[in-house]
Design a binder for these strands. Structure first.
Length: 759
DNA sequence: ATCGCGCTCCTTTTT
DNA sequence: GGAGCGCGAT
């Protein structure tokens, strides 16, 4: 249909020499060191197009990315080059989704059945909670979250339960090892895999020679994006798959490695040339995204990191405006001021809402921003954060669906067995669990045989039987290739919606809306994926977050963590909360390594900005319902000051003094010693002097001025702006002055003042 | 078995 | 400030 003609022209034009080199080098190992904004995705997509052009069959290509967002963009752009039909045939996706698909196909080989359930981190957490509770484990040092992250970390390092147990030195670690073991056992019994298992089981699968051979043959060309973020398990899989054909192309930037905490090994990219001595290395160092000032600022910051590949990121772009630095009184002022600034800019310039992004270190910081955006009537979109799929009402419904597909999924079964209430209480459940344990059968099997359990009275047994019969009634959905209508019936029959209809609490309405949204989601899935099964729907919903489905092009200000911002770019970027303890996060045990990772994270953030970058920090901030006094981030002093314009604190205090959260009575504030820093930030003193060369307004004038504005010039007097050219610092205004006629002025130097009204 | 109150922990960051 | 949990009251 839309099978596009490919030519050398369409593949190689508009590429710089380095990019061409990468695109042209199709055989053998290739390492692309790609700096931020250096056209990495472009090089990758053109390289794939070139492979196709050379006659490589699309299904012989495996392209692995880290996030769904990146995978989506890749597919999109490849589709535009080679036509969507051929693009569809490429195995392009995240590690997790591609491996889940393969595992689904080969499940039997490793003792799973292909209807296995994927547990997300919350499912894992609740499983761990159950294990801790069921075994009466009581250690202050053992928290479900702590155990989960230890297990996940171990899995990523490929430390087995046995290895973990061997290195256990005290009661706490021995108990943790025990939980790890139980957790693994329960997962297998439940025919379920957690996120990490999707990688580990993939390795298990590739241990089987015939299967290894099959996939080595299948994937003649392998591409891996964000290689610096791969962990040990991913590294092993990639290398095994590439072993036959050696056509492996990895792309990465050590300066943008921000997932060490999750097991990522920067070493993988640093050692690539040891793994493949015949490697070709291409460096993409020209940045096409940002102004010289932004690149300069980012570069001066990252220089503080000891361990890094030496490289020079450079740009031909204009110098641009300086990075603006603001000091605010409180996070409230910060949010309010940014919201006001953006709405002003949109009214007075040609900017649209989606030219702006606000980046923060922790999801919790979105709260005050959200409030301010609502106050100011600005449309915004939060990426990441509490996911739609992790809301209780949604998880409950998904649990009902999961149980149909995989009755062994005990966590889901327990979740719904008495919700909505059907008179099956904890006592009854534990009787059934004991029974299941003794006979070594699944909980679901035990439910079916509830009449055999003497400890359970007749009326309770009937309730259980009714529940099982209810599930069985809808079990045909599983094998249906057109299940939409039945799924809707089934969900309605669970009566979950009715529970919230009858509720009078505030959040009931939200929950109803979410449920309706889920209906829409399910409907859309089955309409756009003909012949899809429920199983497939569940698989994608486990691996895709709701923000992946959001349309980034929608006109709204984007709010997200710095981690989620990776791979994206925006004309105007605000990075907020640059305070010690928040960014860099954690104010006590800063290991140099962790600090370097935080620094790389800020580097990633800074390099998202195309034209205008604003950094800010607050003197006081709400945290856990308390006010904490904050020092400005050390990173702010690390960025070379020649790239920064520091705006004074006084000017930033939004005129909400009366409304301000902190204006009232300080004595009321509960003091938590460890939250207070003794020394008052030097900020207040030093900033007063540094503002002399700044205009009285906190928004740079070149951002405020728009065509039609009446302006005042010191010499020429009043005039009207007729035309604007250039960007940021280089923006020029053509002004028709009353006295001297038309003049072209560089706004930066013109000292124009925007007037209200006509002349 | 359910409800509601108060207590605790939470906060990294994501597939 | 909010979610989740345990415990005691009904």
């Amino acid at each position: 249909m839309d099978s596009k003609e490919l030519s050398d022209e369409s593949i190689f034009s508009n590429l710089n020499d380095k990019q061409k080199e990468a695109v042209n080098y199709t055989e053998g190992p290739l390492l692309i060191i790609a700096g931020a904004g250096s056209g990495k995705t472009k090089a990758l997509t053109h390289r794939i197009a070139n492979l196709i052009h050379k006659g490589v069959k699309p299904w012989k290509i495996l392209s692995l990315t880290f996030t769904n967002k990146a995978a989506g963009e890749m597919k999109d752009r490849i589709g535009k080059m080679i036509g969507s039909e051929r693009a569809e045939q490429i195995s392009a996706g995240t590690f997790h989704s591609i491996f889940a698909m393969i595992l689904r196909r080969e499940a039997n080989a490793i003792g799973y059945t292909n209807n296995f359930t994927i547990y997300d981190s919350e499912d894992s957490l609740s499983l761990i909670r159950h294990i801790i509770k069921d075994n009466g484990i009581k250690f202050d040092e053992i928290t479900p979250q702590g155990v989960r992250s230890k297990i996940s970390w171990s899995k990523n390092q490929m430390i087995s339960v046995a290895d973990f147990a061997k290195s256990a030195v005290n009661d706490v670690t021995r108990t943790t090892a025990f939980i790890y073991g139980e957790y693994q056992k329960k997962l297998i019994q439940s025919n379920a895999m957690d996120f990490d298992d999707l990688l580990l089981n993939m390795i298990k699968l590739l241990n089987i020679p015939e299967i290894l051979e099959k996939y080595q043959n299948r994937y003649e060309y392998i591409l891996v994006d964000e290689y610096q973020d791969t962990n040990k398990a991913q590294y092993i899989i990639i290398n095994r798959l590439a072993k036959l054909h050696h056509n492996i192309c990895v792309v990465g930037d050590d300066a943008q490695s921000i997932y060490k905490w999750r097991g990522a090994e920067i070493r993988n990219i640093l050692d690539f040339k040891n793994d493949y001595p015949d490697v070709k290395i291409v460096r993409l160092e020209q940045n096409y995204r940002s102004t010289k000032n932004i690149i300069g600022g980012a570069d001066s910051l990252i220089k503080y990191n000891q361990s890094q590949i030496p490289k020079t990121l450079w740009t031909n772009n204009p110098e641009g405006s300086l990075i603006e630095l603001f000091t605010y009184d409180s996070d409230f002022d910060e949010s309010e001021s940014i919201a006001k600034k953006i709405s002003k800019l949109i009214k007075s310039n040609n900017y649209t809402l989606n030219d702006f992004a606000i980046l923060y270190r922790t999801n919790a910081q979105s709260l005050s921003l959200e409030k301010s955006f609502k106050n100011n009537g600005l449309k915004y979109m939060i990426l990441g954060g509490v996911s739609f799929y992790s809301r209780k009402e949604i998880k409950d419904i998904l649990a009902y669906l999961r149980v149909l597909v995989n009755p062994k999924d005990t966590e889901s079964l327990i979740r719904i067995i008495n919700f909505p209430v059907r008179n099956i209480g904890n006592t009854t459940i534990s009787h059934i669990q004991n029974f299941a344990f003794e006979l070594n059968i699944s909980l679901y099997e035990a439910l079916k045989r509830v009449d055999e359990i003497t400890a359970i009275k007749k009326n309770k047994a009937t309730a259980v039987t009714n529940f099982v019969e209810f599930l069985e009634e809808y079990s045909s959905i599983v094998n249906s290739s057109n299940p939409l209508d039945d799924i809707v019936d089934y969900i309605n029959a669970t009566k979950i919606r009715n529970v919230y209809l009858e509720m009078t609490t505030d959040d009931a309405e939200d929950r109803l809306m979410n449920i309706d949204q889920l209906f829409v989601d399910i409907e859309q899935y089955f309409i756009s994926n003909e012949n899809a099964t429920l199983e497939e729907y569940l698989q994608q919903s486990a691996l895709i977050t709701d923000s992946d489905k959001k349309d980034l092009k929608e006109d709204s200000v984007k709010l997200m963590t710095l981690h989620s911002a990776k791979g994206l770019e925006f004309p105007n970027v605000f990075i907020v909360g640059l305070e010690q303890g928040l960014f860099p996060l954690g104010f006590t045990n800063e290991s140099p390594e962790e600090l370097e990772e935080e620094r790389r994270l800020l580097y990633v953030g800074i390099t998202r900005a195309e034209k205008y970058l604003e950094l800010s920090h607050c003197l006081r901030r709400f945290k856990f319902g308390d006010i904490i006094i904050s020092k400005k981030s050390r990173f702010l002093s690390e960025i070379n000051s020649k790239y920064i314009n520091h705006n004074s604190k006084e000017e930033n205090n939004v005129q909400f003094k009366k409304k301000s959260l902190f204006s009232d009575d300080y004595s009321q504030i509960k003091k938590k010693d460890n939250f207070y820093f003794d020394d008052i930030p030097e900020e207040t003193k030093s900033t007063k002097q540094s503002t002399v060369n700044n205009t009285t307004n906190k928004i740079p004038i070149f951002l405020q001025i728009k065509v039609g504005d009446i302006v005042n010039h010191k010499l020429f007097g009043l005039g009207r702006v007729e035309q604007l050219n250039g960007i940021a610092d280089n923006k020029q205004a053509t002004v028709l002055f009353k006295s001297v006629g038309k003049k072209k002025l560089l706004i930066k130097y013109a000292g124009l003042e925007i007037m209200k009204g006509n002349f």
